[in-house]
Design a protein around this nucleic acid. Structure first.
Lengths: 328, 328
DNA sequence: CTCCAGCCTGCACGGATGTTCACGCACGTT
DNA sequence: AACGTGCGTGAACATCCGTGCAGGCTGGAG
């Protein structure tokens, strides 16, 4: 323990030389015999740090192999049923593991991310809305080493003066960085103060160019809001008053700040004339709109969006998928 | 993160129910995807503690499998050569991994321990001397769940007034506990003050009974000391004066406090008449004496002990084995 | 022979992990 | 129906592990 002075060999090519033998025996002691790294270090006469590093390289070189039973986080059966029932292009259903709404969002994001990355693939122009589940999804998409030259455009303006982490702008920016692609910003508030102000925004050249981009979308990723549990309510954009007005007009859901009824038709309201975002018809025209949703409360809204032809693909959790299929 | 209040299911059979699916996906995220346990916990909606426990049971149940390249810590070739050259019953040569003397001792102890446990097996009566390497060996022997009824007797008295961790008494006691066997103590100092005092000890009934046990030994485990580097010197038992006297008498090594020359004959000295330990002839009569040695400095002593018929098996490190074979 | 560059090592720190404790719910019992 | 028992959970603690940093040896070039 304190006999370091009397090492038998020079300290600087002791370990490197008999690398494999040492690495293997260290790995066996640690992984198979269950010794701690300190104990292994004592037995081998090296520092604990070195043991840690040896273990790392042993894993890298395949001296240590770790395997885990297969597990498919997606429910292929439900996916097929969704596709068939609603005529969807694609569906991802993430298995439920019985946690909180927040953990469900994270699970959907985590397991759907690699598939989404494939979907995005080589698309030239991808549009993004905001939302918590969509945020988790983007958050879990791996950075690419080689860019594909894709462009990412935000489909709606920013809510409030300080953009939150799940606003369309942040998500598009992040995704563009991960893919080493271009970020097209929609530099406007999600809701203007008045219709006049909204029209003023829309007349700006910068913003007009974004609007023309909306017509060229290859893929759109959107969240779906409900009136009951809306991020707009939380952020104070949607007043109880407007909410009641929308309900009266038959609104059941919202996409990109635009509320729609059971058949996917946009509902008139004070907000409708002030919103700065892609129109529902533009989304329909896109032809490839994926809704990223989690939680049981969005069922009606999502079903309406699908029936109304706005949404053509879904990314959803198991409970949500059951909800969609259950009544309707 | 702070949405705990709104869990969808009762907290008490959420996880246990879908055990396998959850365990598998947790294990995959942790081991294959390289997530931290906290991240996994967030995604799955359970606490980090639970993730840790799930991982443990996943390993236990074989959902996670870890394999490491084969590695034989023993040098079978050297073992065979030792057996042939010296006519040994058995030999264990532990591969060197180039550490300190202390780490070599630990390595010998660690890797030889399971084999030693086999050697001990069902023997009725096993004798133990003291020593650092032997201490490491004993230290690394696993506790048995079922006792074999073996008895363990210390082959020499205790050095000093407070028994160190590597004295014969401690080692025998520990080993007896590990094997759930009996411990026969030799309640005397290793070196009496005088020959008269020694004879007095030997005449005690308790000690005489130990002596008769010496004649019934099935196996003896001993260390081998040298004059240059002796634990006795460190502990002040062996004075420089006596040491010189021993050298003059041809002593090259020591076992159980008894010094012997190149042919294994015990050398006379002031210590010889005061030592309370098994005699070399009794060891020879035992017929199964294993020397547990590490380090390069014991070569001559060990060779003499083997040649002199005291030692019939060896447990040694690679360098020591080379030393034995090298010159002689 | 001397200098320099590169690499490997051990130390120290911060974060990650394993474990113990006390609580709360569910089930079996009275 | 109420209580007692048992299990699984989460929070706090102690430990363990991974990583940035500085020092020293080695090997090659001048």
């Amino acid at each position: 323990m304190r006999e370091h002075p009397c090492r038998l060999e020079g300290p600087h090519h002791t370990v490197a030389d008999q690398n494999d033998a040492l690495m293997t025996s260290v790995a066996r002691m640690y992984y198979l015999d269950g010794l701690g790294q300190s104990e292994v270090a004592n037995i081998c006469g090296v520092s604990r740090s070195t043991v840690s590093r040896l273990l790392t390289t042993a894993r890298e070189r395949g001296i240590v192999r770790i395997s885990v039973d297969e597990f498919d986080p997606r429910d292929r059966d439900l996916e097929a049923r969704l596709v068939e029932r609603f005529g969807l292009r694609r569906a991802i259903v993430v298995r439920e593991m019985g946690g909180t709404p927040a953990s469900t969002r994270r699970a959907v994001g985590y397991f759907a991310a690699p598939v989404l990355a494939e979907w995005i693939g080589e698309r030239r122009l991808v549009g993004l809305a905001g939302g918590r589940t969509l945020g988790e999804l983007v958050h879990h998409i791996e950075s690419r080493t080689r860019g594909t030259g894709s462009a990412f455009v935000q489909l709606m303006g920013t809510i409030g003066s300080s953009p939150g982490r799940i606003d369309a702008s942040e998500l598009s920016r992040t995704l563009a960085r991960r893919f080493q692609g271009t970020f097209l910003t929609l530099n406007a508030p999600a809701f203007a103060q008045s219709q006049r102000a909204r029209d003023l925004f829309l007349s700006h050249d910068e913003i007009r160019s974004i609007w023309s981009a909306f017509d060229a979308l290859d893929l759109a990723l959107v969240g779906v809001g409900s009136l009951d549990e809306s991020a707009f309510l939380e952020r104070g954009v949607l007043t109880d008053e407007t909410c009641a007005e929308l309900r009266a007009g038959g609104a059941v859901g919202e996409i990109c700040g635009r509320f729609f009824d059971e058949r996917g038709r946009e509902c008139p309201s004070g907000l409708r004339d002030r919103v700065v975002s892609i129109g529902l018809d533009a989304l329909r025209a896109c032809g490839d709109v994926a809704a990223v949703v989690s939680g049981p409360s969005r069922t009606n809204a999502l079903r309406a969006a699908i029936r109304g032809g706005i949404v053509t693909s879904v990314v959803i959790d198991q409970v949500g998928a059951h909800g969609l299929l259950g009544a309707g």
